[in-house]
Amino acid sequence: MNITISDLHFSYAPNVKALNGISLTINAGEQVAIIGQNGAGKTTLVRHLNGLLKPTSGSVSIGDWDTTKHSVAKLASKVGYVFQNPDEQLFSKDVLTEVEFGPKNLGYKKNKIDQLVKRALELTELTGKQETNPYDLSPTWRKMVALASILAMDTPIVIFDEPTTGQDFTNITRIANVIAELKKTGKTVITITHDIDFCAENFERVIALSKGQVLLDGSPREILGQEEILAQTYVDPPQLTRLGKKIGLQETVITPQEFLKALAQRAG
């Protein structure tokens, strides 16, 4: 299911323009990271993908659905959206009920729901916490519950808004595993993140936004080496990319594996 965005403009108020003519196509099964400075319009952009916001002008389609013609609740069967703040969505007495909520709304059959929920809990390592009240969990785990509750909806497109903020190493690895698993099952993943190393290591396409426009769009290798342009939107290249450049490696490297390989080649 492709996402087509054409000449999208959006203003929160007549003088608060957040998106300024964005055109993009995201193909089914792509793993896309969206980066860019605070206030660049990242959240505003992804909120258009499930119809929470409607274009001021231009259009957004999910497959052949124009987002202005379908309710958010209907679009939810195609696009899952994990909010940045889990406390805005958790309400159930236990984790299990919370995770079942989405798939039940979508009207799936009982045994499909059971399967999806079980899978989502496994992926987020919440198995064993099913009976806990989400509000008794730490903020980190609450974030995982929110994530599981969207995964269980089994949508072809999944959006994460800053899943890595405030997370420790173990949790970032956990989230990376979830994304890898989604990729394996052919889902489209769109993730907003400020963690550029995480971005370099887990995505096949990077879109840098700046002031409501697309600044750069391409593979991590093409995009993440462009230090001067990225600086316009307050982003540094990944650590190893900066290092590679400084020690004079020929090509742009972005991951540890690439760096070590290039180093070995140079050593001969």
């Binding site: 860019g36 400075q37 605070n38 800053e162 903020t165 405030g166 400020h194 550029i196 600086a231 939107t233 307050y234 982003v235 540094d236």
Partner: peptide, 13 residues
């Protein structure tokens, strides 16, 4: 306490 968690990379620096 984690004062830059929501900030962009250069802003953090």
């Amino acid at each position: 306490d984690e004062p830059t968690s929501q900030m962009d990379p250069i802003g953090t620096r």
